[in-house]
């Protein structure tokens, strides 16, 4: 069953065709990778999924609900979480506070003014946050200032923040960008654990690193020049002539 449907999506930026009639269907519980060279339109497509951009034409539906024109925070409330290429965390706060915020958001919705409560008295939420930090091996860093974390740890923290909301669809924009090989492998392992522990979670990964893609993906869509060239399982994608052409210029 499909959880995310992208149908005939096109987007132009003053004459430049960033997306041209893109069609992608993501099955529930799968890991779907979107790959392609620079300028293929991957990030534009991702921005159309999270409400940052509105396509000129076409439809994007999540669980049969349209995402077009819906604000980012509403899309998140529907069950879509996003991991950014450069980790977007609350840099002035501690690691624990970073995870507490999405947990409060999940419990309270987009706004609730509970000025009479204290954070530390919310034992259940604090316990849940600490469990999540243990899941991503960051329990011992919970009182650290998040700005002082390494890039790999920032990524782990961002993942913990996204997972705290129990999303049904997790969008990952180059989750290993700028990471050393060891950190990349750790992130792959962490994503595998997440997939194994949360059977219902669907992941869409936009990634350049083929090692990451072939380690995780159930299906792969290859994009080039704003179009979806081919979609298939990893083994078939590897030797596909269109993929060779897109990446290696036909050589």
């Amino acid at each position: 069953m499909s959880i995310l449907e992208i149908r005939n999506v096109s987007k132009r930026f003053s004459g430049l065709k960033a997306l041209d009639d893109v069609n992608i269907s993501v099955a529930q519980g799968s890991v779907h990778a979107i790959i392609g060279p620079n300028g293929a339109g991957k990030s534009t497509l991702l921005n159309c999924l999270v409400g940052k951009l509105v396509p000129d034409s076409g439809a994007v539906t999540f669980k049969e609900q349209s995402l077009l024109g819906v604000k980012a925070y509403r899309i998140n409330q529907m069950g879509v979480a996003r991991v950014f290429q450069t980790p977007e965390i609350f840099f002035d706060l501690t690691v624990l506070e970073n995870v507490l915020i999405p947990l409060f958001a999940k419990r309270d919705g987009s706004f609730r003014m509970h000025a009479y409560e204290t954070v530390e008295n919310e034992a259940q939420i604090v316990e849940e946050a600490e469990t999540l930090l243990r899941d991503v091996n960051m329990a011992d860093k919970r009182h650290m200032h998040s700005a002082s974390l390494s890039r790999g740890d920032k990524r782990r923290l961002e993942l913990a923040m996204c997972l705290s909301q129990r999303p049904e669809l997790l969008l990952l924009d180059e989750p290993t960008a700028g990471m050393a090989r060891a950190d990349t492998n750790n992130t792959i392992e962490l994503l595998r654990q997440i997939r194994d522990r949360r059977k219902n979670i669907t992941m869409v990964i936009i990634e350049h690193d083929m090692h990451v893609v072939f380690s995780l993906a159930d299906r792969i869509t290859v994009m080039a020049q704003g179009t979806a060239l081919v979609e298939d399982v990893p083994d078939k994608i590897k030797g596909h002539p269109k993929v060779q052409e897109a990446y290696l210029g036909g050589h």
């Binding site: 980012a72 998140n76 979480a81 950014f84 840099f91 002035d92 999405p102 958001a105 919705g109 987009s110």
Partner: peptide, 14 residues
């Protein structure tokens, strides 16, 4: 809000 409004909106918060 002060720290990162982008992450805030992608956390379901207005």
């Amino acid at each position: 809000v002060k720290t990162n409004q982008t992450r805030m909106s992608y956390t379901g918060l207005n």
